[in-house]
Design a protein around this nucleic acid. Structure first.
Lengths: 220, 220
DNA sequence: CGACCATAGTCAGGTTGGTGGCAGGTCCGG
DNA sequence: CCGGACCTGCCACCAACCTGACTATGGTCG
């Protein structure tokens, strides 16, 4: 259960990655070039691991990673590439990579490596003060306590806390909580919001979910 | 830079490793078999990375790693082996490994990987166990008693306890318990979990296996 | 060789907890 | 005061999980 950012230009490989990671129980944010990767992954604090192709059409994946780092994205990076020379690998590690796999890769091995990176990365993320999410324990933590969240609750809360202070639209929340595009009744969202609020209340969390009528939700 | 623990029986390879790591600016503690590794690395809190050969003369390197974890040595592990099949790698990761390299290896790449592992530091684990595994006797020991485990039970429990406080996915548990990749019924996992729980209960073990629905298992 | 036993794997049935949705109440804006 | 958006309490379903029992297999020992 982790959120994985993928950047890969090849349609087929990207599809395999996305499908494989989803089948492995992970949430996936996919980009097809460096610019999109920066936009999607740059400030998303929910991303726990980045899988980055080195050979992108618009730029070098290693440059993208360095840009990501300077944008504040500190999630561990797994480089994926057709280049198997030691020199290429060394460059990968030197530009901030944490692992390196050569295509063609075995999907199961990639999954295992991604999971190790996810387990190893920062154990908590979110607005540093107040509410913190722990993807490994599936928990939300505050200064006053900790509660366990179910998978759906966790995805939902993660979507809202990933943009602290900013209003997250209802449809965005739905897309995050139900990534497979399944349609759920509008009301179901309310139910889950309520459950999360109840859980946060149970530990006297100082930060709560605020409703912005007609738009969505946000956390202070 | 860092203190690296090495366990490798082959004279030549061990020499290359030790010399290479020293040249890279690291301190090295070297062992030539599992027993020595346990003695030298077991309680050495200065060790930041372990490089472990899987094919040791006296025992399996994966068992040694599990014994090390039980002894409280939670430094990241890089497995080094001649076995390159995906199934071997998966088992390596499931046994608590953080990286996996196949011989013959490029020394510069190994150095780069060791440095990445060292930079990440020890995993943030939960409070130390109370539950100790003995790979020789295939036993689980706590303050309150000791039980003997069957081989399969032991591999399974070892996979879960190697990452205390973290949720270990069902798939990972399967990879560890059935190293040859044989397919077993989903239900079989439940059965073994139950047997292990019963055995731990029989000695009033304070630490038990907790179910995280839809994800896997973990020990507190 | 035959009896016994430990281990492994499977199955059927029961239980639990996450999920989604309904019905009705409440609040807010116009 | 009206309508829509949201909240609340509650229930039904189903997948995941637990439980206890059963069969098969291979090893051990008299």
């Amino acid at each position: 259960m982790a959120t994985v950012g993928v950047c890969e230009d090849d349609e087929g490989i990207r599809s395999v990655l996305v499908r494989g990671l989803r089948a492995g129980g992970h949430d996936v944010v996919a980009a097809h070039d460096g610019a999109e990767a920066l936009r999607l992954l740059g400030t998303d604090s929910a991303v726990e691991v980045v899988v980055m192709d080195v050979g992108l059409p618009d730029t070098d994946g290693r440059d993208v990673v360095q840009a990501l780092k300077s944008a504040g994205q500190h999630a561990p990076v797994l480089f994926l590439t057709a280049l198997g020379a030691t020199q290429d690998k060394l460059q990968g590690f030197a530009s901030g990579g944490d692992d390196y796999m050569v295509k063609p890769f075995d999907l199961r091995e990639l999954l295992a490596r991604v999971e190790v990176l996810a387990a190893r990365g920062p154990r908590a993320y979110g607005p540093s003060d107040g509410l913190v999410l722990d993807p490994v324990a599936h928990a939300a933590r505050t200064a006053t306590g900790e509660v366990l969240l179910t998978p759906t609750e966790f995805r939902m809360l993660a979507a809202i806390t990933s943009r602290p202070g900013q209003v997250v639209r209802r449809r965005t929340v739905v897309a995050a909580a139900w990534p497979d595009g399944s349609v759920v009744a509008e009301n179901t969202v309310d139910s889950f919001i309520r459950r999360i609020r109840t859980k946060l209340d149970s530990i006297d969390s100082p930060t709560g979910i605020e409703t912005v009528r007609g738009v969505g939700y946000r956390v202070a």
